[in-house]
């Protein structure tokens, strides 16, 4: 075996070297625009102005580092807006997670009139771009606003209203995703637990939920991200900064009459990115296992 390797000569050695490195070169080239973009973002947040990737000062020389772009952190409004973003994200995680796991369980396990129709309808609804629904939703929220008690929380220009709309738009996907996870669980396991002496609720809580944890986690992650970075719905159904979230706040910075401070916008963008990065560091492993084919060991 070793002789064969020696005899294969230098030419095939070069070939092998190319075979190994070429994919990396291509990969690096193709992701470099994104990497450069992030590099600019980070540099820009700490400089007065940038030229290319280089920070420059008023005189046009390289230098001019500053923290002034981050001055928005002292503005109480940013914290209120951040809180709004967070509430929206968490609201979506809980709302979509709760409703779709219950709905998906019943759709997967029970037989009732209209089950088939409901399933195809949800799939169809998911195919609708939400933009087409904006005006109709506006009327719905306006109507909700007029209902006493509920209106103050879930009407037009409330965080609750925005959350409600976003949760409903994400439910079809959530239900289908969760249904897939439930469908993969064997019925025998539930039956075994019932015979072992568990009540329906305990079966659900101690047997089913632990087994679809990867599904719940995936759903939670997707919903957190979509709630955290939501723009279209909050932008359409809120006015002013009281109920704005981070992306809407950023948009408001641009629409000011004064010349736009792009470096500060970059800093706000950076600020919005930080929790997501932290979040990814902690959930990376779980995300990988979810993408790599859903729940393992569910046989």
């Amino acid at each position: 075996m070793t002789t064969a390797t020696f005899e294969s000569g230098s030419q095939s050695g070069v070939k092998r070297f190319l075979g190994r490195t070429l994919p990396y070169v291509l990969l690096v080239l193709s992701i470099s625009p994104i990497v450069l973009g992030y590099a600019w973002l980070i540099i820009a947040t700490f400089s007065y102005r940038t030229e290319g990737l280089f920070p420059i000062d008023a005189a046009g020389n390289i230098g001019g580092w500053t923290l002034s772009n981050w001055s928005f952190l002292t503005d109480p409004a940013i914290w209120r807006v951040t809180l709004n973003s967070f509430v929206l994200a968490v609201g979506m995680v809980i709302g979509v997670g709760f409703v779709s796991s219950m709905a998906a369980y019943s759709l997967s396990r029970m037989n009732f009139a209209g089950r088939k129709g409901f399933l195809s309808l949800t799939l169809l609804l998911h195919a609708f771009p939400s933009v087409t629904l904006l005006i109709a939703i506006f009327f719905v929220l306006n109507f909700l606003s007029k209902i006493p008690a509920i209106g103050a929380w879930f009407g037009y220009n409330t965080l609750g209203g925005v959350a409600l709309v976003m949760i409903s738009l994400d439910l079809p996907l959530g239900i289908w995703l969760m249904k897939g996870f439930f469908d993969n669980l064997s019925w025998d396991m539930e039956r075994a637990a019932l015979i072992d002496g568990a009540s329906r609720f305990r079966v659900w809580w101690e047997i089913i939920i632990p087994l679809i944890k990867p599904g719940l986690a995936a759903l939670a992650i997707f919903n957190f991200l979509s709630g955290w970075s939501a723009f279209l719905i909050p932008f359409t159904f809120t006015v002013g900064s009281k109920v704005a979230n981070l992306p809407v706040y950023m948009r408001q910075m641009i629409s000011d009459t004064a010349p736009t401070n792009w470096n500060m916008i970059a800093a706000v963008g950076m600020f919005q990115l930080i929790p997501v990065l932290i979040f990814f560091i902690f959930t990376q492993e779980m995300l990988l296992s979810v993408y790599a084919g859903g729940s393992k060991g569910g046989t």
Binding site: D188, A192, A193, L194, I195, D196, I207, L211, G297
Partner: peptide, 20 residues
């Protein structure tokens, strides 16, 4: 009578062990 009150044990073809 609910399964849990019948005092039976059952072995399934798929074993139906709890994987977690």
């Amino acid at each position: 009578v609910a399964p849990k009150d019948r005092n039976i044990g059952m072995v399934f073809q798929s074993y139906a062990l709890y994987p977690h």
